[in-house]
Design a binder for these strands. Structure first.
Lengths: 338, 338
DNA sequence: CCCCCTTCTGGAACCGGTTCCATGCGAGGG
DNA sequence: CCCTCGCATGGAACCGGTTCCAGAAGGGGG
């Protein structure tokens, strides 16, 4: 367990000079620096980040709170955040927030508060104002990804516009009997995305004068099995079957396509399906979707965090600007059959 | 920024007593403890983990190195590790190792060494003996998940036996023209799993006296698109088509099924497909697979780490014991058609 | 020639806890 | 009655760095 004092002794300098030589702060002659660096290398010295953060107050560590790891969108965001942080020389401490309220409180009031993280990135989570205040009172930057949060800089797509856009795509193809397979509105974790995509669907349908109500919306878990089960149930009845489905996510869309094929319903001849997300599997299933870039949003969040950390004095505006999307038309959508 | 000395002053005790009262170590009268706890709560005091770890040498933080976040197996392991660590009051610092050798060195020689983590869990990564030695010289427990590593306690299934078992399942159904769609043997990250599953396949084929060579094995990335692309190419030629496929993972198996359906090949009547993993989507695609429990392996790894941390003196044997699996037969396998 | 400024270095305080050691006190045993 | 032991508490050292401050040396300008 070599310490800085060991390095200093070997290099025959003081702790102060050794510290300056290794950290690069302050005046050190080139010759002395070389001697210190050589001594450090000789005994395999590595700074204790605990000691360093104790005095500087900086940990070079960012906390990430995220509800799922194993869903495509979240995993992709996480990957983007991770690579950006490592590149910046920062650690990433991961907290998965389950629906368990007690655990969630523990994460915020214990784990995130112990001066262990310099900032927090919240992915796909609706933070309460209490939680925001808690972190804010510690002067820690908070940045959100996926789902705007009041008083916080957030990176996400415009979910209302996204859902409206894919719905309009179907309408422009001539569809009139369109259903939305969306997220469960009762889910307290990330209901904003669910309800906003539903709102976008409703908005586009209303604007086109198409029927839109209880029988054009069905809720499910936003996952492939969720979409699959729902589609099996809904599509089984040929008379109630819509000519097109707007899925709340690509996972739901793919589940719907698989279910349709299994029921002998041809996609897109008998059923058009659009998704939202740009899932990596979308090309494989020929899914028309509105692609977003989760990894890029993660990277952008990290950049923003770094900027806030580098310029603490500045009053950062906590706004939300929609992240760009692009419609990728594939073989799952066409004009309705006769 | 309230410090322990503030708490001590308000509660009218010394720092030493305040520390004992809050940490629970050493003698403190019940009355004093209450007073200290009340004082701490009043000013919203939270220990600085940096200061604490500086003197104790314990960070209550475990580093996890993992090659992918967004693949089912890895995400599931990570979820299992995360919940177990949080439950034990530990933080999880995440390092995704890419193929970039320089970045990998940086993670091991800089990030993991700074006395920031108490232990390391390596998921699906072949550690070099140099890396093991590096961590070992710091007396940090290292535990592996998925893929045995020399000199390290590892939790994983027996990949040779697993591949042999699913191959035997196909053989027992009467298949003789069986191919293996496995992992690329040139991939340096996790080649052990790839080569072991190939070895299990070869072993079962040889034991049954079935042909097994270059034309019964095809390599691809172990992902759905990888399996899909490969299957599209291989299955297109009706004469070269096998009657059954042993996929290197469920993702590859599902990609194969999707490709087969698209080519108009009926599964299982014209093509049986088995996978390995027990992917969450296996039921949806009716995939016969050998299910393992990645989350459980992650949890087991954490338990082992905690045990080693609690009993440092003991000489822990670094062995590998195979994790249990179970064959789940679904509708993707049947006897070969005529 | 003197003064000031820049560069370089060492001493010492400090970050915020934990823990060793000494001390005081009341109770129980011989 | 005295000695010992367990509990309770405070003082002070210490973990391993960073940084402020002071001082010394050398160079340039007035």
């Amino acid at each position: 367990m070599s310490a800085l004092s060991d390095v200093a002794r070997i290099a025959q300098v003081s702790k102060a000079t050794a510290s300056r030589a290794l950290s690069g702060n302050g005046y050190v002659s080139a010759e002395t620096r070389d001697r210190v660096v050589a001594a450090a290398a000789a005994i395999g010295y590595v700074v204790s980040s605990n000691a360093a953060s104790l005095v500087t107050g900086r940990t070079r560590n960012v906390g990430v709170v995220i509800p799922h790891i194993n869903r495509w969108y979240f995993g992709d965001v996480l990957e983007g955040i991770e690579s950006a942080l490592i590149a910046a020389g920062y650690d990433l401490t991961l907290y998965r927030l389950s629906a368990d309220a007690a655990e969630r409180r523990r994460v915020f009031e214990y784990f995130l508060v112990r001066k262990r993280v310099d900032a927090v990135i919240a992915v796909g989570i609706e933070l309460t104002s209490h939680e925001v205040g808690l972190l804010g009172s510690l002067a820690k930057p908070i940045v959100g990804v996926g789902g705007a949060i009041d008083g916080i800089a957030t990176f996400s797509i415009d979910d209302v516009a996204a859902a409206a856009l894919v719905t309009e795509h179907l309408i422009s193809l001539g569809h009139t009997r369109i259903m939305h397979f969306g997220g469960d509105q009762g889910n307290e974790m990330d209901f904003r995305v669910h309800s906003q995509r539903l709102a976008g669907f409703t908005q586009a349908m209303d604007a086109a004068g198409l029927p839109c109500g209880d029988d054009t919306f069905r809720a499910t878990e936003l996952s492939m099995p969720g979409g699959y089960e729902l589609a099996l149930a809904v599509l089984a009845d040929p008379r109630a079957r819509p000519s097109a489905v707007v899925a709340g996510s690509d996972e739901v869309a793919i589940g719907t396509i698989v279910a349709a094929r299994q029921l002998g319903i041809h996609v897109p001849a008998q059923l058009s399906v659009v998704g939202i997300d740009g899932h990596e599997l979308a090309p494989m299933f020929g899914l028309t979707t509105l692609a977003q870039d989760p990894g890029g949003q993660g990277t952008a969040a990290v950049e923003r965090v770094m900027a806030e950390l580098d310029d603490e004095g500045r009053a950062w505006e906590r706004t939300w600007s929609p992240y760009p999307v692009r419609l990728e038309v594939r073989s799952s959508t066409t004009a309705p059959g006769v």
